[in-house]
Design a protein around this nucleic acid. Structure first.
Lengths: 348, 348
DNA sequence: CTGTTAGCGCCTTCAC
DNA sequence: GTGAAGGCGCTAACAG
C-alpha cells in the first residue's frame, strides 16, 4: 500500500536507520549512501509519515497561529507575516514546518479548544494574536493551558496581547493605550471638546486599553466625559454604523467620533454620510490600526498605524527560536498617529 | 512526565483499551466505567497524544485549508466558513477536528509544499480555495499530488477553482465567466463603448475566466476591443491604482473601468480621484466579489456578489462528508450583479 | 461489556 | 559510517 521507510531502505539496500538519518540530516552519512537513499525516496515517491515520526521523536513540526477573526485583515496581515517566518525556513524538503492558522472567531471556548488541539498534536510552537478576553475564569484557564504548553516544550508567543504572568510565554504587546491617547490628544488639539467613542467589545483587553488612552487624553485636557459619549460594539463595520447613529441620537452636538478600529470608523463614516453629515466638516472621525482600507475612505482616515507585519514577523521568529526574547520576556510595539483628511478643527 | 493513556487506565483501574474506547466513543462502555474513566482523565489532566493515535488509527483529525492570500478578506471569509463547518462539529471534547488554514501567498511552490506537508500529516481533508495557476507543469504536479492525497484517503475539495480531472476531488467552481459577462453587459447597456479592463495575474484561472466573460460581452455588443484597453496586475489595490493610471494614459477617452476584483476597483477609484476625475460622472468603475469594503467606497461599487460564506460552508461540509457531492463531482456557484453608485451612463 | 495482544512507522540508543 | 533492536502512545482485532 503506502510506501514506508522500510520500503525505501530495501530499495536502497540500506537499513531503515540509515534512511532515517539521511532524511533528518542530523547524522553523518556517507555521500554515496545518501545519494542512493535520496534516489530511492524519489523513485518510490516516499512521503514521511508525520504522526509516526512525531510519536517516535516526541516532537512535531506543526506550529499554530490563533486569530480572533480570519476574515479581518488585521489578523490576516499578522498571520501572513508569522506564517511566512515560520513556514518559510527554506531547508531541505523534509525540514519544513507546517505553520497553520486557527480561527477562534473571538470565542474563548474556541480559543481553549484550539489550544488543546494544538497541545494534543504536540505543536512545536503556538502564537496567539490579538486582544485577550479579560473575563477572569477564562483568562485563568488560558493561562493554565499556556503553562502546560510551555511545560510540554511548546514555544508560546503572544502577539498583540498583554503578557500572561508565569506561563513562560514571550510577549509582543501593542501600545494600544498610547496610540489611543495620541488620537484623542490630536482631536483635542484641533479644538474638539465633545468627542464620542465607539469602543469595541467591553471584555477585551484591546478595547480596555484604547478606551483608557482616550480617557487619559480627555482628563489631561480637563474635559469631563459624559457617560452618553461611549458605546460598545464589536470590531466591525456594522457596529460602527450603529454606534455612530446611537451616539448622535444621544448627543447631536458631538463634533468628533473616535472609533475602536478602522472598520468601525468606516461604518461610522457611512452612518454620518447617510445622516447627511459631512466628514470632517460636521464631524471628525478617527480609526485605529491603519489597515489598507483606511486609506480608501473618502476622506482618508486619520488613524494609528500598527506595524502588524513587522510585529508578526518578529513573533514568528521568536516562535522559531530564531530571535532572542526581550530581557523580561515582553516587548511593547508602538503605533504611529497618521493624520489624514477625516479630522479637522470643529466648526465654530 | 507527561500523562499517558496507561496512567489514566491505572488510575481508573481499567485497561488502556477501555480508556481508549470511552475517549473515542465508538464502542459500548458501561456508564459507570465511563464515569470513572472520565474522572480519571480530568484528575490527571490527560490530553491525548495526537501523533500516537493518528499512527495507530492510520487517520488524523487534521484538515487543511489552502488560501492564496490570507490577508485578503476574499479568502478570509471563505476560510472562516470552511473552518466553522469542519471544526465546529460540536461533539465530545475528543472528537474535534483541527481545521487549519495554510497561506500559500499565491505561490505554486508553496502550494505544493503545503499539500505535501498535509499529506505527510495524513490529513483527513484538504480544501483548496481560489483560482489555480494555469502553468502546465505546475498544474500537472498539483493534479498528481491531489490524486495521491485522495488515494491515501484524504478527502479533497476544490472551492472557487476549476475541477481537476481524474483526481477524485469534489469541486465547487465559481462562475467567474458569467459574472464578468454580466458586469460588462451592464456597462454596455448603459451605453459604454470604450471600456478599460484591469485584469488580475495572467496565469490564474480566475483572471482568465473573468477576462473571457468581459470579452464575450464586448463581442456580443459588436464592440471591437482595443489591445490597449487591458492591463494585468495582481489582485490588490495597488495594481488597481497603477492599472487605472496606465489605462487612462493609453486612452483618455475610456468611459468605464472593469476591475479584476473589489480591491483593484478601489485602487482604481483612488487613482481616478487623484487624477481629478469623478466617479461615475467621468468614469464608471466596477469590481468583483462584493467584499464588505466595496460598500464603503464612495460611491458604492457596482460589483458581482459571490456567496463566499455559503460556498465555503458547503465546501466544509463536503470535506467532512456531511453533504453528498453533486452528481458529476462538480457544482458551479453563480454570482449576482449588484448595481450601485459607481456606474452610470457615460456623458454625451 | 472488558482485558490481552499485537502492531502502526519511525527514531535512537547501542554495538559493530 | 552503518545495522540491529527496543519503544514512543495508542488502537484494533481477538478472546473471554
Amino acid at each position: 500500500m503506502t510506501v514506508t521507510l522500510a520500503d525505501v531502505a530495501a530499495h536502497a539496500q540500506v537499513s531503515p536507520a540509515t534512511v532515517s538519518r539521511v532524511l533528518n540530516g542530523n547524522y553523518p552519512v556517507a555521500a554515496a549512501t545518501r545519494e542512493r537513499v535520496l534516489r530511492a525516496v524519489d523513485e518510490l515517491d516516499y512521503v514521511v509519515n508525520g504522526p509516526a515520526s512525531a510519536l517516535a521523536a516526541a516532537t512535531s513540526d506543526l506550529a499554530g497561529i490563533l486569530v480572533n477573526d480570519i476574515a479581518d485583515p488585521f489578523f490576516g496581515i499578522m498571520a501572513s507575516a508569522i506564517q511566512a517566518e515560520i513556514g518559510g525556513s527554506g531547508g531541505r524538503a523534509g525540514c519544513e514546518r507546517l505553520a497553520v492558522v486557527c480561527n477562534t472567531g473571538g470565542s474563548p471556548e474556541q480559543e481553549l479548544k484550539y489550544l488543546t488541539l494544538l497541545q494534543r498534536q504536540r505543536a512545536a510552537a503556538v502564537v496567539l494574536t490579538g486582544g485577550a478576553v479579560t473575563d477572569a475564569p477564562h483568562a485563568a484557564a488560558v493561562a493554565a493551558k499556556l503553562r502546560k504548553l510551555t511545560d510540554g516544550g511548546t514555544r508560546v508567543v503572544l502577539c498583540g496581547r498583554p503578557p500572561v504572568a508565569g506561563t513562560g510565554a514571550v510577549t509582543l504587546t501593542f501600545d494600544n493605550l498610547g496610540g489611543a491617547r495620541a488620537v484623542t490628544d490630536h482631536l483635542v488639539a484641533l479644538g474638539h471638546r465633545r468627542i464620542g467613542c465607539i469602543a469595541g467589545p467591553a471584555e477585551r483587553t484591546t478595547t480596555r486599553h484604547r478606551l483608557e488612552g482616550h480617557r487619559l487624553a480627555l482628563a489631561a485636557a480637563g474635559i469631563e466625559e459624559d457617560a452618553r459619549w461611549t458605546v460598545h460594539g464589536r470590531f466591525d463595520r456594522r457596529s460602527g454604523y450603529e454606534g455612530a447613529l446611537e451616539l448622535l441620537r444621544r448627543d447631536p452636538s458631538l463634533t468628533a467620533l473616535v472609533a475602536a478600529n478602522d472598520s468601525v470608523a468606516l461604518g461610522a463614516c457611512a452612518a454620518l454620510r447617510d445622516s447627511g453629515l459631512r466628514i470632517p466638516d460636521d464631524v471628525s472621525v478617527t480609526g485605529f490600526d491603519d489597515l489598507p482600507c483606511s486609506i480608501d475612505a473618502v476622506p482618508a482616515l486619520t488613524t494609528v498605524r500598527l506595524p502588524l507585519a513587522e510585529a508578526g514577523a518578529r513573533a514568528g521568529r521568536l516562535a522559531m527560536g530564531r530571535e532572542d526574547a526581550p530581557g523580561d520576556g515582553t516587548a511593547s510595539v508602538r503605533g504611529e498617529l497618521m493624520v489624514r483628511g477625516s479630522t479637522e478643527a470643529p466648526r465654530e
